[in-house]
């Protein structure tokens, strides 16, 4: 029983990170129709940036997360302007953004290798106070990951539903053409959304950093998991990404513990193919 509870809690923790990553991915897809396969690389860079800020500047963990979020947002906006934006044109196809992503993955991963080296980095002990209840042990950091993710999701919802800029993002997602006619600068909206998506991925990496080490490969699975989640939740759907993130976190945690540790990815991705075979537009997909 306590094992089930422990596994469930772990699933929710990892699910929070999945949700944040998938949120960025689904927003970028919904607004810009870009399949950003480099999302995991942005996640990884986020991890290295927070490590550098904490190690070099010696600042507090939460301040470091804030700085990382801002730095990565600016970085994301620049990358979008320099690569994804010019690749759009009369001859571009859905494959164009995939090719840009492949190029970016090569540039990012090898730049990180050149700057930080191949040795994995660790943040050391952060928020390691333990809570014990019902034979379950949870560290403070794990609780804070979930709390931070929930707050961030709530803030994002508030931003999208209650502010002018947020509403113009929603409008662009619904119909870019009409949004432009209503005087919304959709090009600027695109940049902002891309910056937000990258920033969310970096925050997720920062939150997870104390639990694991920071290495070049840490983002690889995040991209595929992110896409699986937004497919489950319906491409472009924000609630779908949030719910899908937690569902996938639970599935991966539970199947890794109870079914098979080696083959759990087979189960996770197999379930997705099965769902798509029955319902070709995802669980929450509209049409």
């Amino acid at each position: 029983m306590s094992m089930l509870l422990q596994t469930t809690i772990n699933g929710i923790v990892i699910g929070s990170a999945f949700s944040l990553v998938a949120l960025g991915l689904t927003m970028i897809w919904g607004i810009m129709h870009i399949s950003n396969f480099a999302h995991g690389s942005f996640y990884m860079i986020g991890g290295y940036v927070i490590w550098t800020i904490i190690t070099l500047l010696g600042v507090d963990f939460w301040l470091a997360i804030l700085i990382t979020a801002v730095v990565m947002a600016i970085f994301g906006a620049i990358v979008e302007r320099l690569t994804f934006r010019p690749a759009e044109g009369p001859f571009s196809t859905p494959l164009s953004s995939l090719i840009v992503s492949i190029g970016l993955i090569m540039i990012f991963n090898n730049s990180v290798l050149a700057i930080w080296g191949a040795r994995p980095e660790t943040l050391g002990a952060i928020n390691i106070q333990e809570f014990h209840f019902l034979n379950v042990t949870v560290t403070l950091q794990r609780v804070l990951i979930v709390v931070a993710a929930v707050i961030l999701i709530a803030l994002l919802q508030f931003f999208l539903k209650r502010t002018t800029l947020g509403m113009s993002i929603e409008a662009t997602a619904q119909n870019a053409e009409s949004a432009r006619l209503m005087g919304i600068n959709t090009s600027r909206v695109g940049s902002i959304v891309f910056a937000m998506g990258v920033s969310l991925a970096a925050i997720a990496a920062g939150l997870m950093a104390p639990l694991t080490n920071i290495n070049i490969g840490m983002g690889d699975h995040m991209t595929t998991y992110g896409f699986v989640i937004i497919i489950l939740g319906g491409m472009g759907s924000i609630p779908g990404a949030i719910i899908g993130g937690f569902i996938l976190g639970l599935i991966s945690s539970l199947s890794a513990t109870y079914l098979t540790a080696n083959y759990y990815e087979v189960i996770v991705f197999g379930v997705l193919i099965l769902i798509l075979a029955i319902k070709p537009t995802g669980l929450f997909g509209a049409k």
């Binding site: 399949s35 197999g270 193919i273």
Partner: peptide
């Protein structure tokens, strides 16, 4: 047969998932 029922990005991700399953099996 199952994946081609999906379209566009859904097909891309379904086949990507199949590929990850295949590689996992080869490794494990």
């Amino acid at each position: 047969l199952p994946t081609l029922r999906t379209k566009g990005a859904y097909f891309a991700i379904a086949t990507l998932c199949f590929n990850i399953i295949f590689t996992t099996v080869v490794i494990q």
